[in-house]
Computed example of a mutant assay.
Amino acid sequence: MTRCPIPEYVRPLPESVYPPSEDTFLFMDALEKERNHIQTLNPLFACEIGCGSGLIVSFFAKHIAPQSCFCFATDINDECLLTTKSTSKINKVCVDTICCDLLTPFLPRLYRSIDVILFNPPYVPTDEVELMNSQPFLGGTEGIASSWAGGRDGMEVTNRVLNDLDMYLSENGVAYVILLQANKPKTITQKLKARGFKLTVVLKRSSQLELLYLVKIVRLKPPHP
């Protein structure tokens, strides 16, 4: 199988924008592996939460999503949104950008309407002070720290999305999320199962931090009567 080329992105990146790194490339490799499954779903709405440079959502729009799929991206950092918009234009794809905290403004308007969620979250374990200082909605200042400061177990931001996944994800939708070994993937799997979701590992890769996982989350199918 011919590998999809990596999209171009704005260089040099602003200092507050997370540069493409090992987790970014793991994400794109996993999306390529999942391409047939995603296209079988015929998604209409796809969103990247915390888009950074816009490389992942541009890759998705260019190589993975069918033409009928509307792609948008959110971030709390204005510079990330401007960079994502530029990255999408360079790659001749359409990606709408919205400045907001995760997906909070979309309820109830997009209740169970998002077919594909892409999320490379701030997963690094940090103390509460560091987390709060990185988050504008908690009174902190915007900056590059918002792309990696994850609070306790590196999961405080990720959990805000996973806890509301039932409200955002369409009935046959799929969420792709990066996790670190320190995030306790087995515990996350158990919690999601209790909420009616199944987590599977698509790809994993060793990094300078430790083991990175790209996981797929879908609804559990009800048992046959």
Results as ranks from 00 to 15, higher is better:
2 T>D: 12
4 C>M: 09
12 P>F: 06
12 P>W: 06
16 S>T: 07
18 Y>C: 02
18 Y>Q: 04
19 P>W: 12
22 E>S: 14
22 E>A: 09
26 L>K: 05
27 F>R: 09
34 E>F: 04
36 N>Y: 08
37 H>W: 11
39 Q>M: 07
43 P>W: 07
44 L>P: 03
45 F>K: 15
46 A>N: 05
46 A>C: 09
47 C>T: 09
50 G>R: 03
52 G>N: 02
57 V>T: 09
58 S>E: 00
58 S>K: 10
60 F>A: 11
62 K>V: 00
64 I>C: 02
66 P>I: 03
70 F>E: 02
75 D>Y: 04
76 I>E: 05
77 N>K: 10
77 N>F: 01
80 C>G: 06
80 C>E: 00
81 L>C: 06
84 T>E: 02
87 T>K: 11
88 S>I: 01
90 I>A: 11
90 I>Q: 14
91 N>T: 00
91 N>Y: 00
91 N>S: 03
92 K>N: 08
93 V>E: 00
95 V>E: 02
95 V>G: 04
98 I>K: 12
101 D>Y: 07
105 P>D: 03
106 F>W: 06
106 F>M: 01
107 L>T: 04
108 P>G: 05
109 R>L: 11
109 R>K: 13
111 Y>S: 13
112 R>C: 12
112 R>L: 02
117 I>C: 12
117 I>K: 13
120 N>W: 01
120 N>C: 01
123 Y>K: 15
129 V>D: 12
129 V>N: 14
131 L>A: 07
131 L>T: 04
131 L>M: 13
132 M>P: 03
136 P>W: 11
137 F>P: 04
139 G>R: 10
140 G>L: 02
144 I>K: 13
144 I>R: 12
145 A>E: 12
146 S>E: 02
146 S>W: 04
147 S>K: 09
148 W>I: 06
148 W>P: 08
149 A>T: 04
150 G>P: 03
150 G>C: 10
153 D>K: 15
155 M>P: 11
157 V>D: 07
157 V>K: 11
160 R>D: 03
165 L>N: 13
166 D>A: 15
166 D>R: 15
167 M>L: 14
169 L>P: 08
170 S>C: 06
171 E>L: 13
184 K>Y: 09
187 T>F: 14
192 L>D: 02
194 A>H: 15
195 R>N: 15
195 R>I: 04
195 R>D: 13
198 K>V: 05
199 L>M: 15
202 V>L: 09
203 L>R: 15
204 K>I: 01
208 Q>K: 15
211 L>C: 10
213 Y>K: 07
213 Y>I: 02
213 Y>A: 03
217 I>K: 08
221 K>Y: 02
223 P>T: 02
224 H>D: 10
